[in-house]
Design a protein around this nucleic acid. Sequence first.
DNA 1: CCTCTAAGATTACAAGTGTAGTATTAAAAT
DNA 2: ATTTTAATACTACACTTGTAATCTTAGAGG
Lengths: 124, 124
Amino acid sequence: MKELPQISTTEWQVMKVLWIKAPLTANEVITEIEGVTTWKPKTVKTLLGRLVKKRAIAFNKDGRAYVYYPLVAEDECVKAESHSFLEKVFSGALNVMFANFLEEQKLSKEEIDELKRILDQKNS
Amino acid sequence: MKELPQISTTEWQVMKVLWIKAPLTANEVITEIEGVTTWKPKTVKTLLGRLVKKRAIAFNKDGRAYVYYPLVAEDECVKAESHSFLEKVFSGALNVMFANFLEEQKLSKEEIDELKRILDQKNS
DNA sequence: CCTCTAAGATTACAAGTGTAGTATTAAAAT
DNA sequence: ATTTTAATACTACACTTGTAATCTTAGAGG
């Protein structure tokens, strides 16, 4: 189990496209990101650079261009973020968190049924 | 519906004691916090000052001492934080988030049953 | 009244973040 | 071979955050 770097909110958006579509060149990442944000290309490059420095991603050279890929696993990062959030907001109380989300959010019948299926599986 | 200030991780700890026990003097907050962290008293005072500046809390004077109380509601803040987290990590996909938490975390049978009860209520 | 204490106010300071712009340089085009 | 392009590298810059220390001042104690 490795040390996970701290990944900021904007960096998460970059990681998410890399987790789904890596390997990607900087320009491909920029194209993907432009669908979702209003960031300038240079901003995305900065984020890629910072993620490299943090060792969250790495690249291979293809001529003058870099082709990026993740070094950290998505589920590890998701787990770490989730833990932080749960601690920060709910002091670790998972059931309180669930109850809260279920209160606030509207779920379709299908989603509710899916969650109940998951719970049933856990129960056995 | 008011604008919620940005509340940092450390500031959340202070807010949590105020939400539970306000009104509290700075020293009372410090005492509460000392049970949970290793922060120096001055650190807590800084956080109280920042929260006042952000208008997350306010105070009344009692002689030379300030007595603090929250200006923002806990459930509003919880909701906002939860939304940010859900967006950042799960791109807003609530069911994915649930499934993930249920995968990772261990829940007692009682907790699972409680969640199912909540789900049943939502379903009707 | 004067002194000391302790409360709040101000200052510190490096690292991280959001959001790019400018500089350098290698490769593509002509 | 020289010019142009465009990719990466460096620089910017204000704000937030974590983590306090020092300064100022109003009461508490004598």
